[in-house]
Design a protein around this nucleic acid. Structure first.
Lengths: 220, 220
DNA sequence: GTCGCCAACACTGCATGCAATGTTTGTAAG
DNA sequence: CTTACAAACATTGCATGCAGTGTTGGCGAC
């Protein structure tokens, strides 16, 4: 744990603590750090070539965000997201994605139409090719466009937080089913937004998430 | 670092940093620290009789939570919640309170019925007496009971975060109107939950918040 | 061979040092 | 009296020291 310091895996940013936070968050949601893995402040500081202060700041933020959990006098570990946690997260997500779709509807532009159609096409290809990772990526891109169009920083931030935890959980629980269903759902959401119907947009977005929640509750 | 240290305004807790965080958060949402007021780490450390480290931790958490804002190399200040921020907060709140009411409906118990009825009675009295502060307090208690009954830690946490910012904003923007209307809305929510109708519960809760949002958009 | 104790270790959380940086105040020139 | 400049001051963010505490690994007793 020494030579790798040459590539500190820290985005060029401003505050060291913030950079450490982003790097750790990225590694957690990307699965490079697995749930249960210890986040030892001295070890991370050595690995990243910085002192313990900014690392401690970063870990504290991760704990408060729910991406890390404190253990009994043994420091923090990467959080494990249980099946129950995931259900609770999806309940919140259903409400927020629904509202985001509703708010995005009056903001529909040609540019958004173009982007969403591109994403839908790529999604079709990913599903046809059975590319699960690409599916995950394109799925996230679709929802990202909608919540950007919603123009609500509060909702966007909350959905980001939810998504981080969901991505942790997705690696442990195989929610592999329903790739094709997701594309259908997305297309319905798109059509409702394009039609300028806020109620239909919200309903479609909620059904989409609710379907995933149901998958979680039943499918093991 | 003198006489005022005798009453450090810190709940007896565990970690000093956490206690400082709670104390500062309490003072911010309660209006003891006004928006724009500087949160100087050394000054707070002196005032609270601790070192700068835990105070710095606390301020960082407040910034990330949105209750404080960083200024350009002059430390953090208590956040100001603008009218636009408030609208965005209420959009998220509408979605989440609605979902909370929906989820609370199947969990309705005699105990919850008793508590909500007590709160509604107290709310009537507060409105009849024109007691605005009491109205705020009882209003918060009503929503707290519902989101506790919802049993979703994710939604509860998000609504807590929203409420903190809303309380800051309420002191600067006079959203005094609609005390009586709030009680009516609450009673409708209660009745829908008591009737065991999730759709009606969610709709009633959303209308309640949407009404407040509309008040914000129109009323200056 | 197994169990229990003890010592060395590692880590956490608070305190403090320190360089860099921005602000403010005082002073002098115009 | 206003303006420009400079020096002292305050604060931030990172680094490091240090005491308290829990864990771990080894060694001896049974």
């Amino acid at each position: 744990m020494n030579e790798a310091v040459s590539e500190p895996v820290l985005d060029p940013g401003v505050r060291v603590g913030e950079r450490v936070y982003r790097a750790l968050r990225h590694r957690i949601v990307m699965g490079e750090l697995e749930p249960g893995e210890r986040l030892s402040v001295p070890a991370l500081a050595r690995a990243l070539g910085v002192s313990r202060s900014p690392v401690r700041d970063a870990v504290l933020q991760l704990v408060r965000e729910g991406l890390a959990a404190e253990t009994l006098n043994r420091g923090a570990i990467v959080a494990s997201i249980s099946r129950n946690d995931l259900v609770s997260l999806y309940e919140a997500r259903e409400a927020l994605e629904g509202m985001a779709a509703r708010l995005a509807t009056p903001n529909f532009t040609h540019e958004l139409r173009r982007r969403l159609l591109t994403i839908l096409t790529e999604h079709d290809e990913a599903v046809a090719g059975g590319d699960f990772d690409r599916h995950i990526e394109v799925d996230a891109a679709f929802h990202f466009q909608i919540r950007a169009a919603a123009g609500s920083p509060v909702i966007a931030r909350m959905l980001d937080e939810i998504q981080g935890k969901v991505m942790i959980a997705m690696r442990s629980t195989s929610v592999s089913g329903g790739m094709d269903r997701a594309v259908q759902d997305h297309r319905r959401i798109f059509e409702a937004i394009a039609a300028g119907d806020p109620d239909a947009s919200e309903a479609a977005a909620r059904r989409h998430i609710a379907r995933l929640t149901e998958l979680l509750r039943t499918d093991g």
